[in-house]
Design a protein around this nucleic acid. Sequence first.
DNA 1: CTCGCTCAGATTTTT
DNA 2: TCTGAGCGAG
Length: 819
Amino acid sequence: MTEAPLIVPGSVGPRSTGAQGHDDLLAGLNPQQLEAVTYRGPALLIVAGAGSGKTSVLTRRIASLLRSREAWPSQILAITFTNKAAGEMRERVEGIVGEAAKGMWISTFHSACVRILRREAQQFGFTKSFTIYDSGDSRALIKRLVKEHEADAYGLTPGAVQSRISKLKNELSDADAYARQANMSDPAERIFVELFADYQRQLQKANAFDFDDLIGQTVYLFRAFPQVADTYRRRFRHVLVDEYQDTNHAQYALIHELTRPVTGESSDPYASNGMMIFEPDTTPELEGASLTVVGDSDQSIYAFRGADIRNISEFERDFPGARVVLLEQNYRSTQNILSAANAVIGNNFDRKDKKLWSDKGDGDAIIGFTGYSQHDEAQFVADEVESLRRSGMPYSEMAVFYRTNSQSRALEEIFIRSAVPYKIMGGTKFYERAEIKDALAYLVAVANPADEMAVRRILNKPRRGIGDVSESAIARFADAHEITFRQALSVPDQLGFGPKIQAGIAQLDAVLAEATEIMLPASGELPPPTSVADGLSVLLSKSGYLDALRASRDPQDEARVENLDEFVAVARDFARNNPEGTIVDFLTEVALVSDADDLDDESGSVSLMTMHTAKGLEYDAVFVTGVEEDLIPHRISAGEPGGPQEERRLFYVGITRARKRLHLSLAMTRAQFGEVTVAMPSRFLQEIPAGLIDWRQSPGDVNSRGGTQSRALNARRAGGFGGSASGSGDRFAVKQLPGRDALKPLSTAMDKFPNRVTAKMRDNGDLELTAGDRIRHSDFGEGRVDAVTGEGAKRIAHVRFDSAGQKKLLIKVAPIEKI
DNA sequence: CTCGCTCAGATTTTT
DNA sequence: TCTGAGCGAG
């Protein structure tokens, strides 16, 4: 991520020869970085503090392997946690070595495993077109099972069951293994084991893997079929893993399996069974792949998801002879920011001492602010953003972090009113929208007819008069005749339903069949690139799904239609980018995209995200908000072992994202679901030396004297009288809030449609106003437009209200009408 | 079977 | 505050 003193890659052509080529690779590296790039051996651990240039080191290491012809591209496997990081790494390696980079596997754990599983699935009872269940899908399945098993009577909620199963899978455990060591006299435990086993059976039956299975089943595959594993071991001679501190046990095991020596025979239980002439334990046919891992235990923030910090702390023990390189020089942040970070993380007792340092100088002081409410705090952020913008910093170089997604709301509201362009990373994902999930279910029903969940989902969408009762009847029929749910749909007349339901089922069956013929022609010939988009269109229109939405009078449904249009557009884009792409490829891509992946830094907007999402990113200016007890550290973390320490690391990750400016803010009161609660400053604040923080408004100021006016309160008062330091009071003139995402800057097709639905709540669209127009505002009454400034979504009307005085209003979202 | 109403519960982080 | 589940009426 940081490349500070390192030279710009790409200055030397791909064909340059070894020695010469290496000069530019190694130029500007400090001694530790140099070693990290050039060391050769079976195992290398690069302990890379925040901002120490680890991505650069990793990419140079790969480039250097390629340039010196130590490895073919196809022999390299580089693993990251997000597709975004993978894409970035690929780009940078390509920047250095050009075409030679083609053929490398640079991907996430999950996509690498999918690739392997698709190839090998037939080996153990799956087909290549298996479905990937995201957490929503598995929750839905578990929910159904919990109901069927009446497990809620034992206090087993779907959420709890899901997270327990996930944890167990991350440990490579399964229902049987768990049962062996569980207290089976406890009925709740017995039910849980049953649920777990049933869940797994259902997945298998549906030809589906959940997220955890992608990793776990790959490990299983390697262990059960050593000769399969060997093909991958022979292939990948250099395995590199980024963010190693966040690997869980299953991922650790996967790496282990991949880097094992190829023995040729002894790992195959059948081979040594008399037939083979080799002596046991002969020298390996091929030594294990060289393994490079990069990580920083201070940035381990995924323990809650099973990440095991020991994977990194015990690396030397696991891989004897491993070389360890420590990167401590930070090229990202100013010393003030680093000093704060060091002071905070120093309070974690179980860590190896590591002190980041910088030669960038102290830089600006950290700015602190305490608001009266989260709105007040948000206003501070918005004001600061504007002032930084005026001083020349682009919006895209600013980011706002928070602990929980729900905190984004107050920020969004204020940003919208202040006309600050922003972009939310994460939050509700586009493919979690109901209509998108429905569309996906239609596609899955075609790609993987065994997936009963998908077929059930679309059975009555749009309404076909097929309710729970009929659905169960179909399931029973399928069971009784030993056919799949999907197959049952193709014999509607045998199901014993009335004509209406029969017709509905027949129609669904016909649509699915037609789409199947488009996307997966029975003739076996390769469908044209546009087949996915075409098939999707057919599904949506001929199923009546779109018509039903269009006929609806729910205003949200209009937006849903638009979302689906966008989704079809995404499919077309996919066809353009992947001419050979099949429906299965498309579904894979959609299932594995994550929030952090579609970060788009060109769009010129401020980025809002959780601190978790922020990992691996950096910005000139960073705002860490909600620095309060019970938020960071989060209340729930207190109960978990190691919880508070992990929270501290999270905070550390947040503050080390900043290059030049760091802002820490909090609110004295926070409204959470209706009730207003009083918040306390986070303990982490006290861990930062007081001299480093320049408080614009300290917690003490806000507590003791009521002298300082709340910005938000001020602004809300119609008069907009004094107080607000930066004079932005009248930005608040828009009192009625629009939908939370109304103003979201739209850039790519992907982030365009997730937010359409809510955006419908208020959008004046192209309302044309010119000086002299009279308007009516829902709060301020009537007034006259003095002037209009700005463009497009950010057009601002300067209005002189008859009674409420002068206001600036964002035309697009203000509750106004022309009169 | 669908619709609309009421009420409870929810919010930690994510591939 | 918002969403989802549950219930009763048509």
